[in-house]
Design a protein around this nucleic acid. Structure first.
Lengths: 244, 244
DNA sequence: ACAAAAGTGTTCGCTATACACCCATGC
DNA sequence: GCATGGGTGTATAGCGAACACTTTTGT
């Protein structure tokens, strides 16, 4: 019964497209251990909050909460040696901030490219990588683009966001078709003026929903009889909890 | 700095097809709190183990470890009031036991239908539901059937497993075609004798792999140029960690 | 007129489902 | 022979990728 104390922290890998690249919000540690290295925001769980409440509270101290369009749990990092000192178990989260939200950041905090992280503390690089993997997967079968793109955008601007997040070329033609067929895009009716080098002005769109929706669940072994893909998620399963 | 102690436990929703239904392994609590109610196996984390090691160790006390074909993390349950007494955070897992593994169970332990759970303790019913959702999703885009079916089976027997797990009709014809096209099934060359009512004897198959493989990742927005669906998972992403 | 960017039309391959039909066995 | 269950052949619908082509702007 004299088991050693175990502390519990939450950590958030907050991703966003900044400057054409997929970046994660990190702060630079001033004190040991790991002074100088970059770390994910987060911290200890308070007595009266669950992990999701906690991560949202702690993010609010770094970025304007309203800037965070989506938060979801990744997984637990619990290796006994993951941090020095008393054992600390971390629940890792993915957060997404659209590129038109530009929260003021504390001086020790910056957006760092996920593909070229600076020296990171503890296992935080693995958590950031896990967040990137989750984002890439969900971009393909959900409407999660809404949490990355600004509220209004042209297709080519949206395409650049997808390219940065996915890390491979994306065709604007097909992107528009896929998202349109799934009913995720709504034209605002406005057009964006063309640049100095000419070109047809682009139509402006927005996402129809600003909350996570699974749009392409269950490619196979669907229940019989239905013609179209059913728009709703399987009964009794939260979108977050379904496809790991 | 006088934050209250937080305990950490792991809980496993071990699912399997038993008697034609999707069931979960539960044990009946003898003592308060929640005496008489049914609970998931699990318990406190030891000092030198991570959560995955811990859940495998604790399962070994209930079922023969070799019977458990697959274990993966679900999510953290951390509501402050989820248990009485000192605060306890749970990391929940999905475990799968093929139907030809019949571990001896302690007298207080039984397979209970997930669709008709008895009175369960704490938030364990929600965890079992989450496990069922995860299983249903992954049956569609991975080879996870291997962890549910016996090592050798006929297509119609496999079909019954899928029906029980998914909760809706599944066509044997299409099931065979989908799994064959994906290269998941290998015929053993043997045939199962037909029953007393006649009928053509069925060919016997086995799964080619006995470890999780994502077979249908990323229906859309694939990297360009490839003809077939790429057989491997996205570089740098573990199958477990990808699609929630 | 020309270049540039946006957007549409069309083709192609592939997947998954549905359903008709053939095969092998017990009685 | 006939019922029963197993298995294959084939048609259909839809999706996503690729690419040619048209539309609309700036210079």
């Amino acid at each position: 019964m004299t088991s050693p104390p175990v502390l519990h922290e939450v950590l958030a890998a907050v991703l966003g497209i900044r400057d054409g690249r997929l970046r994660v919000l990190l702060w630079q540690r001033a004190l040991d251990p790991e002074a100088g290295r970059w770390a994910l925001p987060g911290g200890r769980l308070a007595a009266d909050e669950d992990v999701e409440t906690s991560v949202r509270r702690q993010l609010a101290e770094k970025v304007d909460v309203r800037g965070v369009a989506h938060v979801e749990q990744l997984s637990v990092f619990s290796d006994p040696g993951r941090t020095p000192g008393p054992r600390t178990i971390a629940t890792a989260f993915l957060g997404l901030v659209p590129s038109d939200a530009d929260p003021e950041l504390p001086p020790d905090t910056a957006w760092q490219a996920v593909d070229a992280l600076p020296e990171t503390a503890f296992d935080h690089a693995a958590i950031a990588g896990s967040a990137r993997g989750r984002l890439r997967a969900k971009l393909s079968y959900t409407n999660l683009g809404f949490a990355l793109a600004p509220s209004e955008f042209t297709i080519s601007a949206l395409r650049e966001h997808y390219v940065a997040a996915l890390g491979h070329p994306v065709s604007a033609t097909n992107l528009q078709r896929v998202l349109t067929r799934r009913g995720l895009l709504a034209p605002t009716g406005e057009v964006a003026p063309s640049g100095r080098s000419g070109g047809r002005p682009a139509a402006v769109f927005r996402f129809t929903d600003r909350a996570l929706r699974v749009t392409d669940a269950f490619a196979v072994l669907r229940p019989p009889g239905r013609s179209g893909p059913d728009p709703t998620v399987w009964p009794g399963t939260a979108p977050d909890a379904v496809l790991p």
